[in-house]
Design a binder for these strands. Sequence first.
RNA 1: GGGCGGUUAGCUCAGUUGGAUAGAGCGUUGGCCUCCGGAGCCAAAGGCCGUGAGUUCGAAUCUCGCACCGCCCA
Length: 558
Amino acid sequence: MKEQLRRALLRALQSAQAAGDLPQFDHSALEFAIETPRSAEHGDLAANLALQLARPCRRKPRDIAEILVRHLAEAGGILAKAEIAGPGFINFFLNPTAWLAALPHIMGEGPNFGRSAWGAGRRVMVEFVSANPTGPLHVGHGRGAALGDALARLLEYVGCSVATEYYINDAGNQMATLGRSLLHRAQELAGSDQAFPDNHYKGEYIRELAEEYLKTLTGPAAPPSPGDQAAVKAAADWAGAKILDGIKDDLRVFGVEIDNYYSEQSLVDRGAVRASFDDLKARGLMYDNEGALWFAASRYGDEKDRVVKRSNGETTYFASDIAYHREKFERGFDQLIDVWGADHHGYVPRLKAAIQALGREPEALQVVLVQMVSLLRGGEPVAMSTRAGEFVTLREVVDEVGRDAARFIFLTRRSDSPLDFDLEVAKQKSLDNPVYYVQYAHTRVMSILRKAAEAGVNLPDPGQVDLSRLGLDEEVALARRLGEYPEAALGAAQALEPHRITYYLNEVAGAFHSYYNAQRVLGEDAGLTAARLLLSQAVGQVLRNGLGLLGVSAPEAM
RNA sequence: GGGCGGUUAGCUCAGUUGGAUAGAGCGUUGGCCUCCGGAGCCAAAGGCCGUGAGUUCGAAUCUCGCACCGCCCA
């Protein structure tokens, strides 16, 4: 719709110039907007073209607008009238059928309505969660998981080729700490009264794992000492694998399927870290200082250079990250998206520096930061302390409130805004709970369709419906809103902001609830019933498609 | 001390990439079931968009200063 008007306006501009009404100028850089005005008095759509032309034409915006409107040809019969208003806006009033035409189109496209080819040819990697396998996922990870998964779905929807990945930090110190924590607990269980070290993992899950681990051990000296390096390694490997299995299971229950789990250790073993060092050395971006190896990150906008290999020979996490992201590019991805906790934001400049050092544009890596989740119950904070190992796991939350509610609520805010997650609200079956509001609208549609079937009313053939029967303002407005869905999906994908879909769906649901309360769909008049059934079906279709983007179900009945 | 994010209705938050009279939910007040699911709807009240300047036809939106809040780094 907007595109049609845009083309019509550009033709009018050319025609005005050809007729000498407006001066010639280079309008290759011309940018103007066609938008929906806030107030209905200002028409269905409005263009600011004349305002933009004021400078190059050196004429008053209103005069230009008048000339443009005079040269405006009929744009395919959709235009009822065009007016000039305010400082020089051109307001377009469209024939209602222009909006209603969206309805048969939506039903024709079905599940594909809203898809686009914007991202065709782009290979995108979305990396998310990537929690260390030292404990179960907590609520904060859940938010990252919901976001990353929705982003992947969105990007695929708009034509990108998308892969998802979970990076496992299994090569560093935390794994050794995990191994020692496990062995300490194992020794306690075997009767030792040695104090548990303060900086180790204290969670109850470690104790449970230790119990299980003891059963796997055979031999006279079990359980081994936390001072035994080989034993620590073995314990860490065992516990890490166990915990990772648990994480995968948590994600599966949450409805998140990740294409690939990528091990940091495998990266090291394969020599990828060394290869990335060689690459950077060849570019003259590495140097030795005080026994350590440094990457010259400050040359690419980071505030200082960074150590990649310590004087004791250990490579840093950053070194692994450089190698990992380098590999992502080598595997053919040209757009990398990382979902991180906001507490890591200080890390962004150095990784972007690394990307550039490897010869990529800084924009080839986009980092989406996710703010904290505060868990509440009935308005009261739920105590959580990662340090003491006491936190509410994602699994517990999903078990209590359900997958749909958890996912939807995680996506009701922009990701860089902190989120209050109230367990009681998430369980409520009312308007307080946004997911029910949207799902309930879908259920109502389904209920109407069931009712129609019971009454022996056949669903209409979308192409045969007389759209002019939908004469109410609210019907046109609803159809119009539905027609905006592809634009909403594309905008959300481009901005990497799935919460826009949440808001959009809320608006559609609200418009439908309102309509439903005021008008009857099923009635005596067969033509009117058919038209309203089509409208209802289209609402259902759009709600299904949109909820699908969020990974939330669209139930037939609740 | 440097950096990042934030500041919009009593509360929680949107604001379509700079458009015309700033929106939604909760809460408050008052209405709506003979009716396709009331898990819903309608209406009212509620605002110096933190603050001071700048950019321009036009700023909640972009730039700079300042004030608070949160986080990261030293």
